[in-house]
Design a protein around this nucleic acid. Sequence first.
DNA 1: TTGTCAACTGTCAGTCGCTGTCACTAGCCT
DNA 2: AGGCTAGTGACAGCGACTGACAGTTGACAA
Lengths: 224, 224
Amino acid sequence: METVGTVAGAAPATGLRERRKRLTRDALLRSSLELFAARGYEGTTVDDIVAAVHVSQRTFFRYFAGKEEVAFHVPRLAESLLVDAVRGRPPGEPPLDALRGALRESWDDIAEAVEQVVPLELHLRVYRVIESTPALLAAHLRRSSELEERLARVIAEREGVDPDTDPRPRILVAAVCGVIRVAERSWSAGDSGLAALRELTTAHLDRLGPALAEPWSDDRHTSR
Amino acid sequence: METVGTVAGAAPATGLRERRKRLTRDALLRSSLELFAARGYEGTTVDDIVAAVHVSQRTFFRYFAGKEEVAFHVPRLAESLLVDAVRGRPPGEPPLDALRGALRESWDDIAEAVEQVVPLELHLRVYRVIESTPALLAAHLRRSSELEERLARVIAEREGVDPDTDPRPRILVAAVCGVIRVAERSWSAGDSGLAALRELTTAHLDRLGPALAEPWSDDRHTSR
DNA sequence: TTGTCAACTGTCAGTCGCTGTCACTAGCCT
DNA sequence: AGGCTAGTGACAGCGACTGACAGTTGACAA
C-alpha cells in the first residue's frame, strides 16, 4: 500500500545500473547521517556530504529533495510500521488500547527495520540531533502532525466513523501523540538507551488519564 | 515580566529616532503580512517587502531575524496573553479547568491586542497562510511546543509539583494543546469567522475525556 | 549654533540551500 | 556493434541570510 523506498536489505537488485544507484543513494544516506551526528545538522553542508561520497551536488539533490529528507529517512520508516501495526490490531479493541498496543508491539519491528538501513546507534544519535536542532525539530513536528492524520484515519475506519465529521479520532490521536512526544523529548534530553524510551513512553501514556482527572491526587507520579 | 515588543498603540514614543524606528518596523510588519496574505509566504521575497517600504534588505534583517519572525509576530503576542491568563487563574482550580478557563477568558483580550497591531481580519488571513504553508506550519508547531513548555511550568507551579520529575504537567498540557491544534486546523480549512473557532475549540476540549474513554459510545459526536 | 558621538542605514561581497540547463558518459537493448 | 536513454557533472542563477565597511542623521553637550 505504500512504497517506503527501502535502502538496504531488500529487493534483489536487477541490473548494474540500479545496483549502482542504490549504492550511491546508500552512501549519501550514511555519510549524511554520520556527518549530522558528528558536526550537527547546520554544521554540515551539502558540499561536505557530496565530497565524502565523491558525487556532484546536483546528484545529491536528484536522490533527496534536500538535507531534511535525508535526516528523516529512518523516522519515515518507523512511522509506516507504526501505522501498519495499528491497522493490524484486533477489531474489537477500544481505540486507546489499540494505539497503546500497536506502539508496544511495533517497537521491535522498528528497531529491526532501522538496523537494516543504518546502525541503530547512529540513528539514535541523529535523533538527538533532530530534537536539538530548531529547524529539524520543526520539521519533525510537522511530520508528526501528518502521522497523526494517518493514524486518525485508521482509528476512524476501525471505529466506523467519518473522520471528517466526527472529531474524536483526531482528538484521541492528538492527545496520545502529544504524550508520546513529551516522552521522546525528555528521553532525548538524557542519554539512556532505547529500552528506557520504550518504558518512558508507555508509562507516560498510562498517566494521561490521571493527569486529566479533576484534581491531581498527591501520589508521587515521579519518573526519570 | 516579559517584553513583548509591542508595535503600535503603546509607549508614548520618546525621541524622534525611536519614533522613526517604530515607523519602519511597523511598515515592514504590515507590508509583510499583507504580501503574505496576497501572494503567499513563499511567493513573497524579502526584496518585495523592502521595495514596498523603501528600505534596504539589510534593514529588514536588522528588525527581524527573518521572514519567519515577521509571520509569527502576532501569534507570539497571543501566546503571551494566554500564558498570563493561565497564571492568573484562581489557585484552587483543577489544572484542566484552569487551562480551559484561561482559554475562554483570554479570547477577547487577544482579539483586542491583535487589533492594535494589525487588522484582525488580516491576521486571520495570514493565519490560514501559516496553516497551509509547510515551512510555516512546521515553525508554528515548533513554537507551539515551546508554548507547551511554558504552560507546563505554570501548571506545575500552580499545583506545587516539580516539572522536571513529575511528568503530569507536560502530559496534560500536551494533550490539551494537541486538541486545540486539531480545532485550529479544521477551522482553518474552512472559512468561518473567529467566533466559530472559539466554539470549535471549547467543544473539542469537552470531547477529550469521552474520546479517551474505553469504548466509544455511539452518540453522534458530530461537529462542523 | 555647532561639533562630536553613536545609532541607524545602505552598499557590497559572500555563503548556503536549492533549481534549471546542457552536454556527456556509460549501461542497456536490439 | 551501435543507437537509445538514464544518470551524471559542470555551470549559471535565485533567494535567504550574514559580515564588513562607509555614509547619514538624530542626540546631546559645549
